[in-house]
Amino acid sequence: MIVKAIKSFRNFREMNSAKQQMNSRRYTRSKFGDFLILLIVVLAGLFTMLPLIYAVSTSFKPLDEILLFPPKFLVRRPTLENYIALSSLLSDQYVPLTRYIFNSVFITIFTTIVYILISSMAAFGLSKSKFKCKNALFMIVQFALLFNTYTLSVPQYLILSEVKVIDTYWAYILPQLATTLGVFLTKQYIEGYIPDAFIEAAKIDGAGYFRIFFRIVLPLIKPILLTLLLFSFRDVWAFIPQGTIFSESIKTLPFLMSQISGGGIARSGSVMAITVIMMTPPVIVYLISQSNVMDSMSSAGIKE
């Protein structure tokens, strides 16, 4: 019953925003402005996309095409040999390629799931609990948005070594879990989309807070959860811990990437191949979540 009510409330909001988009063509548009905008789009698009297209194309080039002078932008006889060469590049190391892939995939998925869970629970508390200190806490969280895992890496180092997690998976996982972006975004979203009255009504129906959160709130805030999925996945997937990982057997793909890119031009095919491997999962996650991300980010504003 309540879920239905909230859903119809959300649909109403979505309809409103859809209506806004329909008549986006307004009176204030000139031909010259249209041209200028098209020009900027084309230039910016070329700037952002050309390197990526070049990477994909080069990753499929056979060696003689890579060494061709002058070089061709696009591949003519595509081959997978750069991808196959990746594992043989590592054959003199005792850690096989699959190990890096496993580490990356495991760490990213585990961290992202835990991150989404603890961030949304904390955001629910910040938004709907009756603790007096919650506003002060939220101000601190909001201010801490400023600091990412790279800024805090050295101050965190001492704590991480104190709790004995240096050179373990936890050195990847814990720093990401402590970032505040997820709590911030989710709290703003809950505030915007789930009125207090719904929580009160559910309480009168006899539901406890756990039940309210897992049964009612979580399904309703799916768009923001998918947004967190994207941001967390992207950050953890690319994360290179600073000075906290030493063992080759627990290193992830980004480490491997920087090792391989140290080699000369003959390896550029392999560098591009591993770049493409690194690019693909975030792109897939983005394609899955993008419409939700666009919906949910509009509540991200910082009010002071």
Binding site: T48, M49, P51, L52, Y54, A55, T58, R234, D235, W237, A238, P254, M257, S258, S261, I265, S268, V271, M272, T275, M278, M279, P282, V283, Y286
Partner: peptide, 15 residues
């Protein structure tokens, strides 16, 4: 896309 693919700046090393 460039920001999405966090480590893609390696491409510039080749360029």
């Amino acid at each position: 896309a460039p920001s999405l693919c966090g480590n893609a700046f390696f491409i510039w090393k080749i360029i």
